[in-house]
Structures are given as structure tokens and as C-alpha cells.
């Protein structure tokens, strides 16, 4: 295969990987939004039944109504947060390279991945520094890479544990560390092709440690003195 064909093949694979990533995130978030709407629908239906019952047949306690309206408020708030996160994610492909706030990017991708972690009975915890860290990068590729790192850690993590995603800065380097307790030593189940493809497109250094205490993945990026 000549160089031109190889480049084109690599571009196609990267494009497909990014589309698949967007699909996974969208499927997960819309599933969660459907649950939000489902809950709102149940509460509305119950309120409708209560309102349709003659006052002589049922007495609705104010506390019961208050519990139901609290539930509506919580679910509406959750729906708004999910929509904002998905909208931010959808705009990541607007520009190939931008000045990117890593704090915001990490918080968003962790929020979008939370449900996937919950399905494996793992809680995601994001620890951010009290100052913003910015890098010049492709936000979609970086989000995808961090998502794959998180999935890799999730695939090895024990159940009912906390997976911590931590952002820190040392001199001109920003580091994202993803850590979780695990006892599994089996080979990871993340698509290595996508992982390597993204690694080759981003100026990052990735380290992986699997020990008795757990899995630790580090992703270092240059902040270029910012």
C-alpha cells in the first residue's frame, strides 16, 4: 500500500472512530434524557389522576404534592444540565484546533461518561485545580482520548468503587490522571486501534500502571507556558 492510501485509510478510520465516539456519547445521554422525561411524564400522569378524582373520594396531602413538584424540579434541572453538556460536546468539532480550557473539558466529558460508569457500578469523581488550565489542542480528539482512557480504567475497575479523574499542572505540563482500584489483570478491552490513532494525532504522553492497588493512567500535555 502506498503512503497516500495509508494516509487516506488512517483518516477514514479516525473519522469513523470519532463518529462512533459521538454516537456512544449521544446514545448514553439521550437514554438518560429519556429517563428524565419518563419521570416527568409519570409525575404529570399521577398529578392528573389526583386532580381528576372527586374531592369527596380522596384527600391529597400538601406534603404529597410538594414531594411530586420537588421531583419535577429535580428532573427538569437534570435535563437542563444534560442538554447543556451534550450541546457543549456537539460544538467540539466546530474548530480543529482551539485554546481549550481543560477544567471545563474534563468536567464535561466526565459528566457525559457518568452513566456509562454507573452501569458498571462505578462512581466518577472529578478533582480540578482551583485555577484554569488551558492548552492549544483539538478538543474532540482530546475528549475522545480521555474517554477511551476512562473506559480502559472502567473495564478493569472493581465494582462499587470511585474512579477519580484528576487534573493538575506542573511547570509547563498539564496532567490528567485516571485512577481506580482494581484486582483484574486481564488485558484491557478498549479498542487499541482507536487509542493509537488518537495518540499519534495529539502531542500527549500517556503512561499506564497496573498494580495491586489499581489502575492508573496518566495523560500529559504541554501547556506551552500558558
Amino acid at each position: 500500500m502506498n503512503t497516500g492510501n495509508r494516509n487516506s485509510d488512517s483518516r477514514d478510520r479516525l473519522l469513523y472512530a470519532c463518529l462512533a465516539f459521538s454516537g456512544q456519547i449521544t446514545a448514553s445521554v439521550t437514554h438518560e434524557l429519556n429517563n428524565v422525561l419518563g419521570t416527568i411524564d409519570q409525575v404529570a400522569g399521577l398529578l392528573e389522576d389526583l386532580a381528576a378524582t372527586p374531592a369527596s373520594e380522596v384527600t391529597v396531602a400538601v406534603e404529597r404534592l410538594s414531594t411530586l413538584t420537588d421531583r419535577l424540579n429535580r428532573q427538569t434541572e437534570r435535563g437542563v444540565t444534560l442538554t447543556k453538556r451534550l450541546n457543549t460536546f456537539a460544538h467540539m468539532g466546530d474548530h480543529i484546533t482551539v485554546e481549550c480550557n481543560l477544567n471545563d473539558l474534563l468536567e464535561n466529558i466526565a459528566g457525559l461518561t457518568q452513566r456509562i460508569a454507573n452501569m458498571q457500578r462505578v462512581e466518577l469523581k472529578t478533582t480540578l485545580p482551583n485555577h484554569d488550565i488551558t492548552v492549544r489542542t483539538n478538543p474532540l480528539f482530546l475528549s475522545h482520548l480521555l474517554f477511551l482512557c476512562t473506559k480502559k480504567a472502567l473495564s478493569l475497575a472493581d465494582r462499587d468503587v470511585v474512579l477519580e479523574i484528576r487534573l493538575s499542572q506542573c511547570d509547563e505540563e498539564a496532567e490528567v490522571t485516571i485512577e481506580a482500584p482494581c484486582h483484574e489483570t486481564a488485558a484491557d478491552r478498549v479498542q487499541e486501534d482507536d487509542f493509537e490513532l488518537l495518540r499519534s494525532r495529539l502531542p500527549v504522553v500517556i503512561t499506564e500502571q497496573l498494580s495491586d492497588e489499581g489502575i492508573r493512567i496518566g495523560v500529559k500535555l504541554s501547556t506551552g507556558g500558558r
Binding site: 429517563n35 419521570t39 409519570q42 400522569g45 399521577l46 389526583l50 411530586l68 421531583r71 429535580r74 454507573n118
Partner: peptide, 17 residues
């Protein structure tokens, strides 16, 4: 169902029915 608010509301509504 793992969506607690969803399932608890459904339980309450079914009880009403």
C-alpha cells in the same frame, strides 16, 4: 429499574390504579 425517581413514581401511580 435503576432510575429511582422514575420507578418510585411509577409505584405510587400504580398504587393509585
Amino acid at each position: 429499574d435503576d432510575e429511582e425517581e422514575f420507578v418510585s413514581t411509577l409505584v405510587e401511580w400504580l398504587d393509585y390504579r
